[in-house]
Design a protein around this nucleic acid. Structure first.
Lengths: 250, 250
DNA sequence: CGCGTTCTTGACTCACCTCAAACACAGTGG
DNA sequence: CCACTGTGTTTGAGGTGAGTCAAGAACGCG
């Protein structure tokens, strides 16, 4: 018997959190909807269908290929990796999701998830039942606009993989991209953790793990950054941005 | 003064063609809509907003980056190449459009075309005013469905470029892809013309022109195909399909 | 401590790119 | 009719970026 995706049994209910309007401040989904012009009343409609779930621990699966699609989820804390296994048994990393970002969007046009999602560290989520949020979106243009924007942003991010960029350019674009996304959520843009393994980065960037290792080392030797195990500090951000520029603007 | 994209002055009007229901049989757009369950009456609505334009000759531009988006167009005859020029002045070929395929779809979410479209040989088009067809689509689910399908198909085709496939795999996938698309329009699947230059193929596949040349030559030496200048015949179709398989199923 | 996993490092290999030159063909003009 | 020119294509020689293979190092964990 296959376990249900996004188990609801460990969901904390709204009442556990006290104040209905601050409890999801780290979830960022509703914040963005506010920015799209949603009012407080609509926000409350949104909040009643949110479930906080987690924690998931490193290696825990959030959903798997073929699980029935019932919900999308905003990452509140931690990092989620999505991937597929091709028919030759090789893993392909599709993306990493940081706090504030939404997983499950690529399942919208099907009835099951097209990929696996796994926690890379301790992950907390805000679960949104998709049928419910879709109905709500028909009433709330701000919500609909936000959903569309999330979708198109996800599609655009694939451009990082296309193109015949060098290993240096890919790596720089990856780091700058992470940095910007973290900064957008209020984290330090220049000092952060690589929560994913080198092999995952390599797989995502379509490089060999050894190449990732070497490029990071060379970047360090050249004073562009400082890396110690998974701890990372960007030193010469400008130079990294320059390297990444042709990739990120594609 | 910038010339208007899709000049309407050389459009032939409906009445020039005699029978309203057969005149656009080569355009294939309406055929596909029929297949999506559209009835004859609806098809007539569609036909009254079609304009036949052309001929465009090799090198003629159909639209350019920044031209106001007014219409999509189905290729009736010939081949269209779309491309952009990056800010370093380098050309990037985005795609080739064969008879029966639709150009301009990527402009839908903006108000101008995001790329250039140029005729590679003598091109005839069916022009559809987009505002008009969009309104019509709200009444005709078959049309809307077809438009959505065209869009998602276009997005999916980008997968050929992503992935770190070998030159052989890319080339095979390109040829098999062309062959299938031509076959779908009733052309011979195994004997056709490469209407685009080697440099365009190379650019599209992100290979050096010399590599394209060499791979074709080797395929010929190995008996997979026969190529003479731009004339092409696929001999061992199966082997090419095998080579292309991992690329095309991605 | 031993053990497994992740990461690093070095040596080697290879596919593809780059550079350079020859070639084929179309169009042009003498 | 034939050079002349330009563009597109082919071919060869050489270089190189990144993959592969293999071994070692650093840490986390039982």
């Amino acid at each position: 018997m296959k376990p249900t995706a996004f188990p609801r049994q460990d969901a904390r209910t709204l009442s556990d959190d006290g104040d209905e309007f601050s409890f999801c401040s780290t979830c960022a989904f509703s914040q963005a909807c506010m920015a799209e012009g949603m009012d407080k009343r609509s926000l409350m409609d949104l909040h009643v269908l949110v479930e906080h779930i987690g924690p998931f621990h490193a290696g825990d699966h959030i959903f798997r290929v073929g699980d029935p699609f019932e919900a999308i989820a905003a990452v509140r804390a931690g990092t989620v990796k999505t991937y597929v296994i091709d028919r030759d048994g090789r893993e392909h990393v599709l993306g990493f999701y940081l706090p504030g970002e939404v997983i499950g969007l690529d399942a919208i046009d099907g009835e099951t998830y097209p990929c696996n999602a796994v926690a890379l560290d301790t992950v907390m989520l805000c679960r949104f039942s998709f049928p419910k949020i879709a109905v709500l979106a028909t009433r709330l243009p701000g919500l609909q606009k936000h959903l569309f924007r999330l979708l198109s942003r996800d599609i655009g991010r694939a451009a990082l993989l296309a193109g015949d960029w060098s290993a240096d350019q890919r790596m720089a674009a990856f780091l700058v991209g992470l940095s910007r996304r973290l900064a957008a959520r209020g984290f330090s843009p220049n000092r952060f953790q690589l929560t994913m393994a080198r092999t995952d980065i390599a797989n995502y960037l379509r490089l060999a793990p050894e190449t990732v290792s070497r490029v990071l080392r060379r970047f360090q030797k050249d004073g562009l950054l400082d890396v110690d195990r998974r701890e990372l500090e960007l030193i010469e951000r400008d130079k990294l941005e320059d390297l990444a520029e042709p990739v990120l603007r594609a």
